[in-house]
């Protein structure tokens, strides 16, 4: 038996597949996603010089961070398999954003309280998703889509149709202002989250069990894993991440509107898939989803710099998502 290089020695980010022989790197989906992101940056530079400047890259990454945070929860849900998908992330994110603005009303002192309440809301809504899916056996697509509708209604009731308040200055500072070398705080938060997710997935019992549940529920259950509890946990975490993204997003936009997170539903799924996580569950990593979030954000940035109208941008964006998902679906079939 060959002794393998340890995680540290491969120089790969934790959470990516370890010990892959050199020729297999070309089919490593995480690497492919990062290369794709790099290629898109170059394309942007060709179309519009200055695209590849330090500040512009930071700007793209800052926008990508919110998608990245939502995609963290989506990654867990998809990894858990059983046709797992969370379509309520957008609505939860919107509710969280509206709540944040409403609670703080531009006062820094109330930021912690807002964070606590928003996270609690995400946890409860996500847990209800998980309970419905694990114990009432409602298909994830139906459960989370229904939950999205319910949460949208709750948001309307909460705001009475008129969201009020704005971001606390401190929140705006944390998210947008540069900390070190021009890097804004949100990117540090995202990096911290990425490290935490990598540790969670690769170096905890929870992560190992999650992969097992996603790969084969029957075998996981017969190995003593309580599958239903795992499912509740991942949907609860997805709710928490969506709420956190909504909270931080207020710091970026400073004002809120009702469907502020609506865009993030399909894009979070796309980021996960582009990052190489199988929609069948059981294989993938958050590092991939990070790359996926960057790819999708660069794409939008390119369309914006082309001065394309909002309508055209949406059409192209939608078409590219379909193309990407089709390409990755094909690849999965080939691998099997």
């Amino acid at each position: 038996m060959r002794q393998l290089p340890s995680t540290e020695a491969t120089g790969l980010p934790p959470g990516s597949n370890r010990g892959i022989p050199a020729k297999r790197w070309l089919v490593n989906p995480v690497l492919v996603a990062f290369l794709l992101a790099g290629a898109l940056f170059v394309v942007g530079q060709v179309l519009s010089p200055g695209f590849l400047s330090y500040s512009q890259i930071l700007n793209v990454l800052r926008v990508a961070s919110f998608l990245g945070i939502v995609a963290a929860g989506q990654t867990l849900v998809v990894l858990a398999g059983g046709e797992g998908i969370d379509l309520s992330v957008g609505a939860v994110m919107s509710l969280a954003a509206v709540m944040t603005a409403h609670i703080t009303l531009a006062r820094d002192a109330l930021l912690l309280r807002a964070l606590f309440e928003v996270i609690l809301a995400g946890l409860i809504l996500g847990s209800i998703n998980g309970l419905g899916i694990a114990y009432l056996r409602i298909p994830p697509l139906v459960m989370t889509l229904g939950m999205a509708g319910v949460v949208q209604g709750l948001t309307l009731v909460y705001t009475q149709g008129q969201p009020k308040g704005r971001a606390a200055p401190l929140l705006n500072e944390i998210v947008t202002h540069p900390w070190v070398m021009g890097i804004p705080g949100i990117l540090f938060i995202w990096m911290l989250l990425a490290v935490a997710m990598a540790v969670l997935l690769s170096h905890t019992s929870f992560g190992r069990r999650l992969y097992a549940v996603g790969a084969n529920r029957v075998a996981a259950a017969l190995s003593g894993i309580q599958v239903s509890k795992m499912i509740v946990a991942v949907y609860a975490l997805s709710g928490v991440f969506a709420a956190l993204a909504g909270y931080l997003f207020v710091g970026y936009t400073t004002t809120v509107f009702l469907d502020i997170g609506g865009d993030y539903v399909l894009r979070s799924v796309a980021a996960v898939v582009v990052g190489g996580t199988s929609l069948a569950g059981g294989t993938g990593s958050y590092t991939g989803s990070v790359a996926g979030a960057v790819v999708l954000t660069v794409l939008v940035a390119i369309l914006t710099t082309l001065r394309m109208g909002a309508a055209g941008r949406q059409v192209i964006h939608g078409l590219v998502l379909i193309l990407l998902l089709a390409a990755y679906g094909r690849q999965r079939r080939l691998r099997q």
């Binding site: 992969y211 097992a212 790969a215 084969n216 029957v218 075998a219 017969l222 059981g282």
Partner: peptide, 9 residues
């Protein structure tokens, strides 16, 4: 394959 192993892992 069905009950014993998580084949992709």
């Amino acid at each position: 394959a069905h009950e014993g192993l998580c084949l992709p892992r």
